[in-house]
Design a protein around this nucleic acid. Structure first.
Lengths: 182, 182
DNA sequence: CGATTGTTTGATGAAAGTCAAGTACCGTGG
DNA sequence: CCACGGTACTTGACTTTCATCAAACAATCG
């Protein structure tokens, strides 16, 4: 656990290594993953401005991360104008992905949600050079319950959809390794 | 229409009067409402930093709005430090509501989604003094298809749920006026 | 006044959830 | 080395929720 729900933090964590997830927990203990965090990601851009992390941030693999003091970042923004530009890029990206997720959950089928989740992750890993070969292959540490919590589905249904994807030759997925065949 | 999908804007619109919605349109022409915009709301905080409005912004009632040039806002941020604080508040609020919507769409039933949508709107209108009386009553210009597009449901199902809410004495809703009974 | 557009209701269907049983795959400690 | 308990995954039977389709009606607007 990198941040707990209602903790106050005077520091902003940034992922250096490994995968993590930002998670909302409901009263009935079901969960919704709001975003996956990959190396280079700021845990949440809202932490740049307020100390309250509104949701749980949990490691999926082993994670290395590093924290920056908010007070220092705040002064740095004013002394170093390029920094604000950088933060605004991060925040635009964060909001864009949140909006995409809203559309996925509101208007797409289980198959579409899972396919898009996988493809989005692959795209982000490609940018980071964390993939191999052609057709593209990569380490894929997510459990099916992570996929379920990110797509608003049940683990059982995720299993069925992934089996279907395998049967129709779209992906190869086993032993924490994923290949995109089509 | 206040902003079109892929237009560039050197100005940031702020709603002065009336209701609007920020909408993502899919290839099959179904829609997902990302947020409702009420008087005082910035259309999108990402517009403060990039000219591309990623989604359609449509008026629901007649709307008055006013625009601020981005270039002027940008310099104002540096000459007037309190302004950055204000923008960050708006950003945090915007992201918080987006995250809540993700949870609603991912993990809640139709009844819950609609109830929460209505209650969130009532809460925001209360803050603005746009309600009357006790039990609280207010102008409610949304069509059932707006509710459907915001909750990821069909208009038909929204009608059924609202009828059920009426039958069980939770709300009174007719002629664009809503009363929260329970 | 007819023509849209919005709402209600019921019958039927499809998508995803729930439940349950079985298998595979660890890591631990004897 | 093996037995064990726990977690993850798979599969099938059955249920629930919501979508789809259709028809009727109400409201709104030139």
């Amino acid at each position: 656990i990198i941040c707990r729900d209602e903790d106050l933090h005077d520091a902003v964590p940034v992922i250096c290594d490994g995968w993590a997830a930002s998670i909302a927990t409901l009263s009935d203990s079901s969960r919704q993953i709001l975003s996956f965090l990959l190396p280079g990601d700021i845990v949440s851009t809202t932490l740049l401005f307020e100390p309250r992390g509104r949701h749980l941030v949990e490691a999926i693999t082993d994670v290395r991360y590093r924290v920056f003091r908010r007070s220092e970042l705040k002064t740095a923004v004013f002394t170093h104008p390029g920094l604000l530009e950088k933060f605004s890029k991060a925040w635009i990206e964060e909001k864009y992905r949140a909006d995409q997720l809203i559309v996925d959950l509101g208007r797409r089928t289980a198959d579409e949600r899972i396919a898009r989740l996988v493809l989005n992750l692959v795209e982000r890993l490609l940018k980071r050079g964390m993939t191999r070969g052609e057709p593209v292959e990569l380490d894929f540490p997510l459990r099916q319950r992570h996929i379920a919590d990110a797509t608003g589905l049940t683990p059982v249904h995720v299993s069925k959809v992934l089996s279907e994807f395998r049967r129709s030759g779209l992906i190869k997925l086993s032993e924490r390794s994923l290949t995109i065949l089509d």
